[in-house]
């Protein structure tokens, strides 16, 4: 199981690196889809079918929206990059080096905390359920729901779902506010 997941994750990492260095925005989005749909297969292997169903639909809708945003700008952007190269301005300058150094410092910072956290964790596949023990043992009788994820989502952790619904509503109001053209004229 661990080897299968590692191969899938390597595939996803290569897709991610290609997406960041692609010269065309449309192909960058398609390789972003590699990572998203690879995640669906990982969820299926990890026995999380709820997450797989949600992720496959959400990834498709995200790709549609992103392609709709990018569609009439791709060729324009490509031409721009060529122009910069012709003018003699190198793609790598002082600011870019500074950015890469910032990434390295932040990576070391995260690596420190990752190293601290990984000692406390159980090894992969040998998880002992401490917090969710009561949910697993009594969840089905107390909520009456055969699907434990739904039972947790709407009964034990109802506040989280309420917060999620509020954030979704706020995001929709934000999108409607940003994209409204009238009122500026």
């Amino acid at each position: 199981m661990e080897i299968t997941l590692s191969v899938l994750l390597l595939f996803m990492i290569f897709g991610a690196i290609y997406a960041l260095f692609a010269s065309d925005l449309l192909s960058a989005l398609i390789s972003c889809g590699i990572v998203g749909y690879g995640l669906v297969i990982c969820f299926l292997l990890l026995r999380a079918p709820d997450l797989a169903i949600v992720q496959i639909v959400v990834e498709t809708i995200t790709l549609i929206i992103m392609v709709a945003v990018v569609l009439d700008s791709t060729r324009h952007d490509l031409r721009e990059k060529v122009l910069i190269r012709e003018k003699g301005n190198s793609y790598i300058n002082a600011k870019y080096v500074f950015n890469v150094l910032t990434v390295l410092v932040l990576a070391l910072f995260f690596l420190f905390f990752f190293n601290q956290a990984i000692d406390k964790l159980d090894a992969f596949g040998e998880h002992t359920t401490r917090m969710a023990k009561a949910y697993i043992e009594q969840g089905a009788e107390r909520t009456g729901s055969a699907n434990l994820v739904t039972g947790i989502l709407f009964d034990f952790r109802g506040y989280d779902t309420l917060g999620e619904a509020t954030i979704l509503f706020t995001a929709v109001v934000g999108v409607l506010t940003i994209l409204r053209l009238k009122g500026h004229k």
Binding site: L46, R47, A48, D50, L51, V54, Q55, V58, H127, T129, M131, A132, Y135, I136, G139, L148, V149, I152, L153, R157, D160, T161, G163, E164, L168
Partner: peptide, 14 residues
């Protein structure tokens, strides 16, 4: 498998 992280990730995806 532990259902608690799955429930949290389900809200996080949306």
């Amino acid at each position: 498998v532990d259902p608690l992280p799955q429930a949290m990730v389900l809200t996080a995806i949306v």
